[in-house]
Amino acid sequence: MYDLDNPAAPASTTQVHITGTLFKRWMKSCKSPRIDEGNAYQIVAMLLEGKKETLGTAEITPNWHLTMMGNRDSTVSTNFHFKIEIGKPYSHYWHYVLHRNATTQTWYWVGHPNPNCTATNQGGGGGGSDIQLIRSNLTLVQLEARQRPAMEKGMNKSIRDKLVAKLTQWDQAGIIQANTSGVFDGGTTV
């Protein structure tokens, strides 16, 4: 399993926000098998789901997902996280925000600090503000993922970057644009 890293903002970019409508259209175009809007403040797009299994006494479905964290009704993004979840005991995530170069209409993932531990954009496993516990959690999740080949290879930087390539493509084609509030929306032609 890969460490998705904590990329810095490229020069000449600014942070941008997208609507929940654009997020859902974006994820469907990237072949997300399922999108869950059941929780306030977030929309979850499954990127990869494994087979149901039993872990201890719990029935789980290992997965990789991308969550758009937003306002209460998820109409505007605040940040995003990529998360591997092999049941609640084995989960780890990376926080990101979207940046855009207005001149080239190019989109980027930029690491967004963990609010409890600004030394990283990672979280999980109850690590809170302790960077060593966060790193230890990643190691535990990696060990658990090795037992599930699809989960171990299910997400990497290349796949992560292909997602923003779709936003770049749509932006350069004029399919998406900022609304009057400066938030990017999906338009009607996506």
Rank of each mutant, 00 (worst) to 15 (best):
L22D: 02
F82I: 13
N6M: 12
F82E: 10
L55P: 02
M46V: 12
L4C: 04
V97D: 01
T189G: 04
I134T: 04
G125H: 11
G70T: 01
A58H: 12
V183N: 00
T106R: 06
D161W: 08
N63C: 15
Q105V: 01
T180W: 09
K157H: 12
G50R: 04
V110A: 06
T168H: 08
G187M: 05
L167E: 09
S77W: 08
M151G: 12
P62N: 07
K52S: 15
I175K: 15
Y90H: 12
K31C: 14
L47M: 11
L47E: 06
T188C: 08
T103R: 14
N137Q: 12
G187P: 04
W94S: 14
A173T: 13
F80Q: 06
G50S: 07
S136E: 13
T14M: 10
W64N: 05
R148T: 07
Y96C: 04
H112Y: 14
A165V: 08
K162P: 02
Y90L: 10
A40F: 14
W109V: 12
P62D: 13
R25I: 10
D3I: 14
W170C: 01
I84E: 12
H92S: 08
S32K: 08
G182K: 00
H99K: 07
E53V: 00
T57Q: 15
D5S: 14
M68W: 00
I175A: 10
Q105H: 11
A40M: 13
I134R: 05
Q42E: 11
L98S: 05
Q172Y: 05
G70F: 01
H92F: 13
R135W: 07
Q132D: 15
E59D: 10
I43R: 08
S129D: 15
G127P: 05
T75P: 01
Q172V: 06
G50T: 02
S32L: 03
W170Q: 06
T67Q: 04
I86S: 12
R148S: 07
L133M: 10
V44Y: 00
T14Q: 15
I18A: 00
P10V: 09
V190A: 13
R25P: 01
I18R: 00
W107M: 09
V141W: 09
W109T: 13
N6S: 10
G50M: 07
T120P: 00
M151H: 05
P115F: 06
T54R: 13
D171N: 08
V16M: 00
I43G: 11
L163M: 13
A102R: 03
S29L: 07
S77V: 01
P115C: 03
G70V: 03
Q105T: 04
P7K: 07
Q177C: 12
